[in-house]
């Protein structure tokens, strides 16, 4: 069985990247973001961040790659992994209370819904950054790559979640159209640097 690294991440360990938040809010970097402060505060009070990661070997067969039990022919992922012989597969979620908050705003305030969603997305990225910091403490990692980007299809999501036992450990499930729930969840593959 793969070793699974599973832990909670405190909200104060998440560093919101100003540029990321500005991008998500579709405002310039020097924009006065106090307009979103209310949503940021509320999100911080409900984020329950948890991660699960597995370290698996990568094998390459012609056009295909095998990462643990997961087979893929994604060229973009292959490029991102470079010469790594091992990868971390991970999932990190902000938890379902964030979904509850977003659901509430979607019903009562479209402006609030947009801003809360934007800030939550920025927090999800911050969570993924934090996971990589934690993993870097084990083995130095390269840039992460997520399903849905480039030619790595969302169809790989069930296998990724299974590899880190995300259903049981994080409560992450998939909808029929392969969206993750809780919705502020990120899965990714990060190559491990060879010494």
């Amino acid at each position: 069985m793969n070793e699974i690294i599973y832990q909670s991440i405190k909200t104060k360990e998440l560093t919101l990247d100003r540029r990321e938040a500005a991008n998500r809010l579709r405002v310039p970097r020097d924009f006065d973001m106090s307009v979103a402060d209310e949503y940021k505060t509320q999100l911080e009070s409900v984020i329950d961040c948890k991660m699960a990661a597995a370290r698996v070997p990568v094998e390459r067969f012609g056009d295909k790659m095998l990462m643990g039990e997961i087979e893929t022919d994604s060229k973009d992922l292959e490029r991102c992994l470079g010469d790594s012989r091992e990868v971390f597969i991970f999932a990190v979620t902000l938890g379902s209370s964030v979904d509850r908050l977003l659901l509430k705003y979607s019903r009562i305030s479209p402006a609030g819904a947009f801003m809360a969603d934007a800030v939550a997305n920025a927090y999800a990225e911050a969570a993924a950054d934090r996971v990589q910091e934690i993993l870097d403490g084990i083995e130095k990692t390269k840039n992460r790559f997520s399903p849905g980007y480039g030619d790595l299809p969302l169809e790989i999501q069930p296998k990724i979640l299974e590899a880190v036992n995300a259903g049981k450990l994080l409560g992450v499930t998939l909808t029929d159209s392969l969206l993750m729930k809780p919705q502020k969840t990120i899965t990714a593959v990060a190559g491990i640097n060879r010494e």
């Binding site: 579709r26 307009v35 402006a111 947009f114």
Partner: peptide
């Protein structure tokens, strides 16, 4: 002006 402002105004 930007999207958050547009939305707040619309609301």
């Amino acid at each position: 002006a930007f999207l958050p402002q547009l939305l707040m105004s619309a609301e």
